[in-house]
Design a protein around this nucleic acid. Sequence first.
DNA 1: AGGAAGATCTACT
DNA 2: GTAGATCTTCCTA
Length: 187
Amino acid sequence: MPLPKSFYDRDPADVARELLGKLLVVDDKLRGRIVETEAYYGLSDPASRAFKGKTKLSRWMWEDAGSAFVYMVHGYWLFNVITEREGKPSGVLIRAVEPVEGIDYMIERRGTENPKNLTSGPGKLTIAFGITGKDNGTKVYDGHSRIVIEKGEMARFKIATSGRIGVREDLPEHLRFFVEGNKFVSR
DNA sequence: AGGAAGATCTACT
DNA sequence: GTAGATCTTCCTA
């Protein structure tokens, strides 16, 4: 069962923290455990795609909680889930997952057999899972969607935080969350 | 037409 | 570990 829409209708930092350990599922055959996330706010966050207002690309950030927002940067697609109510842009970037199921497909798409290099980065995991701009607007709380996020079980783990990676201008708060010691975290 | 963007890969010290 | 090239759209001029 996918996580309910209400799970995403909250502050993105809370959602980012609690998405750790959850399962990203695509086409019911590719599964990955989320081990690294980042929260992004809207108009008040210079690193957010919504900062400069609605454009053809960023308009997906104004969708309702639990919608997919896929953005391309430097030739790679990055997968985000929108948080908070419709009309209030914010979201969570999925930065890394740990491969769980469908590893053969991931190896084929990524062109490498090194499991550590399959999904250990935001641009890598979209390639491994076959996620592109066409998936914009997908409702990840709807069981019929191609992309959903499920509860999943994971042994106890410790959550660490840091500033966000790669952004030109970060906010003072720590908005990156990751599973401490997990080898699939991007760095 | 040119540049920016939340990254990755490769080839070195 | 760090440095540089290169990746693809869309946005702004």
